[in-house]
Nucleic acid binder design. Structure first.
Lengths: 257, 257
DNA sequence: TCGATTTTGATTATTTTTGAGCAAATAAAA
DNA sequence: TTTTATTTGCTCAAAAATAATCAAAATCGA
């Protein structure tokens, strides 16, 4: 097993899993940890991957892997289920908006093989889709470090230049009484811009966020085509939303989008 | 068993297995290790395979998936020297354009501590500056996977919305006779847009690229404020550029920007 | 067959790569 | 915050691979 072979295997592993640990790679390559570390250092120098403590990640997943990926891990199972439902709505050739939530990020592995166009303000989404069949369009503007995404006036203007078939939007809170709410005004602006320029705007929202109001309320439920949520939603809640005329889907109901 | 037959078998083996060891091949060819090594050296020279320690791999197997950062390794020492000179031009509070070359990428570690605003179309630059004192503004548009950067009409429009104090621009080729040249038209468009909207546009160009013309010529030298290059430039070339009225700097001359 | 040229193989010195132990640095936990 | 546990970079030594040199063997033309 020479360096070229190891390099190939390491990069291949990262392509599949986005990240890998040193000891894990050492076992895979039938070699010692120190050799793996040397290889990783070499590949990192070329920018083919980014070192982390204990391993390496694909370039782009680097920035703040802890906080971002951690956030993705909260309710991950529900979020993945929601993504699964959401992806069904996409047809080949579509143009879609993806905003910068952790849920939309989890959609990326599921759409890499599709010949679609994705317009997004999220850096992790861009990085996750690069090199795939998807044509990626990054929304420009000032980058918010914490959210790893572009926001602001320029970003909104960028979105208004495009029309999409679908918009998938994460929200911090939804309630029948008060509509959509967010933790920041800048995020709300992007959500509205994408919703306004898509034929269908779909909210992705795991059941823990339903009937929770966050500090900034910015839109009614009516302009949005549907809410996709998970199985943990109570029948009572489901009924309540339907009563209010909201098209809410959790994969078990017979209603289709 | 002569060379032609061995060559055939070696290449055939590589085709099947992607890689092969010297001793393994020696056994297969019923010959000694030293002969195999001589054969491999000969075939490597023709580009039919790539040598590794202990064997050889199929060409293309050794190639890096993304060629961008690879370029950073070429002439790295000269490029770092150029960056060092370039950074001296930046003042706190400045707004600067950075395009997507490997040289501008190497500037990032040197400017992370500065309270400046960077507008760039390069994803690696964005990633390298995130979480630093720098305010990052990403140019939006369709992302070119190979260059890891935004290009196109939307990207150019984005740049035209901003005014910068400085633009640092990598170029593929420069010559006194033909001015600037690039390997792609899209890159040239970004270079021009940034140059047009900066008070001072500075070309970063290691000496190996001087007096080299690439396939697409797109600008004269005159609109650019200066060229920063490295010490390896010959005195004759330096004189020739100065004769032509170009402000060219390599850190040793007394001329300041 | 002879002698010259090329190719191959063996030996040795040099280089490259690898692995282990240990102090310092970093992240996680309390 | 301090403490604890990993992880890392470093140096050194061992192992593997290589280049260099020279001798032996094969090839070839006359």
């Amino acid at each position: 097993m020479n360096f070229q072979m190891r390099k190939q295997l390491i990069l291949q592993t990262l392509e599949q899993k986005d990240s890998a640990g040193v000891s894990e790679l050492a076992e895979l390559l039938h070699t010692s940890a120190i050799t793996v570390r040397r290889d990783l250092a070499l590949l990192a120098e070329k920018g083919l991957l980014v070192r982390t403590h204990g391993g390496a990640v694909r370039p782009g997943f680097a920035k703040d892997p802890v906080s971002f990926i951690n956030k993705a891990a909260v309710n991950q199972e529900q979020k993945e289920y929601i993504c699964h439902l959401a992806v069904k709505e996409i047809k080949e050739g579509d143009t879609i908006f993806l905003d910068c939530g952790s849920t939309t990020f989890l959609m990326c592995p599921l759409i890499r093989h599709l010949s679609i166009r994705v317009v997004t303000n999220s850096l992790p989404v861009v990085n996750a889709l690069l090199g795939s069949a998807v044509t990626v369009n990054m929304v420009g503007g000032e980058i918010d470090h914490k959210r790893q995404a572009a926001h602001g006036l320029m970003a909104a203007e960028h979105v208004y230049r495009y029309k999409a078939d679908l918009a998938f939007l994460g929200v911090d809170g939804i309630s029948v009484a008060n509509g959509l709410s967010a933790n920041s005004e800048t995020e709300a602006e992007m959500t509205l811009a994408m919703a306004a320029n898509a034929r269908r705007a779909i909210l992705l929202c795991d059941s823990s966020k339903l009937e929770k109001d966050k500090y900034f309320q910015f839109a009614a439920l009516s302009p949005f085509h549907a809410i996709i949520t998970d199985k943990k939603i109570t029948p009572a809640l489901l009924a309540m939303y339907r009563q209010a005329g909201v098209n809410i889907v959790n994969g078990e109901s017979s209603i289709v989008l």
